[in-house]
Amino acid sequence: MQPYIISLLNNKRDAVLEHWEKELELVRSNNYLTTITDDVYENMNQEFMRFIISQVTTDQEEAKGHLSSFAEKYIQAGWPLSYFTQGLQAFRRVLLAFLSENESDVQALLATFSDLEEWIDGIVNQLVHDYTGNWEDIIEMQKLSLLELSAPLIPVLDSVTVMPLIGTIDTARAKLIMENLLEGVIEHRSQVVLIDITGVPVVDTMVAHHIIQASEAVRLVGATCILVGIRPEIAQTIVNLGIDLSKFPTKSTLKKGIETALELTNKKMIDL
Rank of each mutant, 00 (worst) to 15 (best):
57 T>S: 09
9 L>M: 05
164 P>S: 11
158 D>A: 07
161 T>L: 01
87 G>M: 13
7 S>A: 05
132 T>Y: 13
7 S>I: 00
69 S>A: 09
214 A>E: 14
204 D>S: 10
65 G>I: 08
50 R>Q: 04
76 Q>S: 08
84 F>I: 14
189 R>F: 02
196 D>W: 05
69 S>N: 14
234 I>Q: 00
53 I>L: 02
81 L>N: 06
266 N>G: 12
124 V>H: 09
215 S>Y: 01
76 Q>F: 09
165 L>P: 01
28 R>I: 03
145 S>V: 14
132 T>H: 13
18 E>Y: 07
172 A>V: 15
175 K>L: 11
70 F>H: 14
167 G>S: 14
140 E>S: 06
245 L>D: 03
227 L>C: 12
126 Q>D: 06
25 E>W: 00
261 A>Q: 10
100 S>A: 08
39 D>W: 01
2 Q>I: 05
171 T>E: 15
187 E>R: 01
10 N>M: 07
162 V>W: 11
119 W>P: 09
228 V>D: 00
225 C>W: 00
158 D>Y: 03
52 I>L: 12
74 Y>Q: 09
180 N>P: 14
109 L>F: 08
223 A>I: 12
237 T>M: 01
176 L>D: 03
249 P>Q: 11
265 T>V: 09
82 S>D: 09
194 L>N: 11
94 V>I: 07
265 T>K: 07
198 T>G: 03
77 A>N: 09
215 S>G: 12
36 I>W: 01
89 Q>K: 11
190 S>K: 08
59 D>W: 00
15 A>R: 09
164 P>C: 09
97 A>C: 06
69 S>G: 13
152 P>F: 15
123 I>Q: 00
150 S>E: 10
245 L>H: 06
26 L>S: 11
119 W>Y: 06
112 T>M: 01
149 L>R: 10
18 E>A: 13
270 I>R: 13
16 V>W: 00
254 L>E: 14
26 L>K: 04
165 L>W: 11
72 E>G: 13
13 R>A: 12
226 I>L: 10
56 V>C: 01
256 K>E: 02
155 P>T: 04
137 D>G: 04
208 A>G: 10
33 L>P: 09
100 S>N: 09
170 D>S: 10
24 L>D: 13
268 K>T: 05
174 A>L: 02
203 V>T: 02
1 M>N: 06
238 I>A: 00
218 V>S: 07
198 T>C: 00
206 M>I: 12
14 D>H: 10
221 V>N: 15
49 M>N: 08
241 L>Y: 13
161 T>I: 14
7 S>T: 04
8 L>P: 01
129 H>A: 08
113 F>M: 05
264 L>V: 12
266 N>I: 08
126 Q>N: 08
194 L>V: 04
167 G>Q: 11
179 E>Y: 01
134 N>H: 15
162 V>K: 14
237 T>N: 03
195 I>H: 02
125 N>G: 06
151 A>H: 14
192 V>M: 13
190 S>P: 06
120 I>T: 13
259 E>W: 07
189 R>Q: 08
59 D>E: 07
54 S>E: 02
147 L>H: 11
243 I>M: 06
48 F>R: 07
243 I>K: 05
159 S>R: 15
130 D>Q: 10
217 A>P: 10
212 I>E: 04
61 E>M: 05
77 A>C: 03
14 D>E: 15
155 P>V: 01
210 H>P: 02
110 L>S: 12
217 A>F: 10
259 E>N: 04
